[in-house]
């Protein structure tokens, strides 16, 4: 196990060391102590390693991740797992705004609440939030899945393309062109897998599904302001 203490060691050195790990590395488990809200901890990784971050992080932790598992054992600042390509990012606490923004792949699990704009412009990432999400979540989501075990804030799924949204609790309001849709067996199967992967004990049949009404794909004079 490799250990890094950000109270005494440099963040750039940590990221350089993590980014230097190759697919066949034998340094597979890393511990990061005292991040103290630092920005961009464990970003740009591209190896099947596990990084445990022990403490709150600031902006962009786990950003651009590929293959790696980044486990934040506390809360995360804005933009956690932003533009993730593959791998897993787990946040034990709360996540600030735009968690998982623009993510192309991989799994982001937030065990607390996520604030506004969770999954904004998501492009294939799968996000499971054990708690609530704030307003404008999945705004312009193109692909992927957002699962919310708690409640969703205002304007969920505004201007949505093809991302799939599942909410167990209440939805304060739906955004433009976002509608509730029928839950079919393939959706229950997808939810079962995602909830298991995210270690949530929520039941798939407790959720409702939301998606795009596809009314904004083509110009319509009624949509012009």
């Amino acid at each position: 196990m490799q250990s890094f203490n950000l109270q005494t060691q440099d963040l750039r050195d940590l990221n350089a060391a993590l980014q230097a790990q190759a697919e066949e590395t034998n340094q597979t488990v890393w511990e990061v102590e005292n991040p103290r809200g630092s920005h961009a901890v464990a970003v740009g990784l591209n190896a099947p390693i596990e990084v445990n971050v022990r403490g709150p992080v600031g902006y962009y932790c786990g950003g651009m991740n590929q293959q790696a598992t980044v486990h934040i054992h506390d809360s995360a600042g804005p933009g956690v797992a932003e533009n993730m390509m593959s791998g897993t990012v787990v946040v034990e606490g709360d996540a600030s705004q735009y968690a998982g923004a623009t993510g192309h792949g991989g799994l982001l699990v937030i065990k607390g609440n996520a604030s506004s704009r969770c999954g904004i412009s998501m492009k294939g990432i799968e996000i499971v939030v054990h708690g609530n999400v704030g307003h404008m979540s999945a705004f312009m989501g193109q692909k992927g899945t957002l699962v919310v075990c708690g409640d969703a804030g205002d304007a969920l799924g505004d201007s949505l393309y093809e991302a799939r949204l599942f909410v167990r609790g209440s939805v304060k309001s739906l955004g433009a062109d976002c509608v509730e849709k029928e839950m079919r067996p393939e959706h229950l199967a997808l939810l079962t897998d995602l909830l298991a992967a995210a270690k949530s004990d929520a039941k798939p049949d407790e959720f409702r599904r939301y998606g795009s009404a596809r009314e904004l794909y083509n110009f319509h004079p009624d949509n012009a302001y």
Binding site: R36, P56, H135
Partner: peptide, 27 residues
């Protein structure tokens, strides 16, 4: 504001309430 783009973190203990734009300020 209702859009809430600008960051904010609050912390409370029996001794104080602290506010910062980021957690770093509270560390």
């Amino acid at each position: 504001d209702p859009i809430a783009c600008k960051p904010a973190v609050l912390a409370e203990t029996p001794e104080y309430v602290a506010f910062g734009s980021e957690y770093r300020a509270l560390a």
